[in-house]
């Protein structure tokens, strides 16, 4: 899972896409996911990491993550997701 080039993420959860000029905001878990994506983690690894840290089941996290990636895709922040 790879973020597109030059996407800037700030500590406030502010995301800027210099290619399109769009800006976004995300919640702390969203920031965490993006950080893990920057570390080249796969979807499965991200799910596992989050499940260890937070009180939710993997299946639930995976469902939410797929939705999150779908949004990243529609906002052109990633180019593909399975």
């Amino acid at each position: 899972m790879k973020l597109n080039k030059n996407i800037a993420v700030s500590d406030n959860g502010f995301i800027f896409n210099p290619l399109s000029g769009d800006s976004f905001s995300t919640n702390p878990i969203g920031q965490e996911v993006i950080r893990l994506m920057k570390e080249q983690k796969t979807k499965e690894e991200i799910v596992k990491t989050l499940a260890q840290k937070y009180n939710s089941e993997e299946a639930n996290i995976e469902k939410d993550l797929v939705d999150f990636f779908q949004m990243l895709l529609s906002y052109q922040l990633i180019s593909e997701h399975e």
């Binding site: 700030s10 406030n12 959860g13 502010f14 800027f16 800006s23 905001s25």
Partner: peptide, 11 residues
């Protein structure tokens, strides 16, 4: 600066 827009948008 984008930083200003970020500040008003997020905070």
């Amino acid at each position: 600066d984008l930083a200003e827009f970020e500040k008003i948008s997020t905070l």
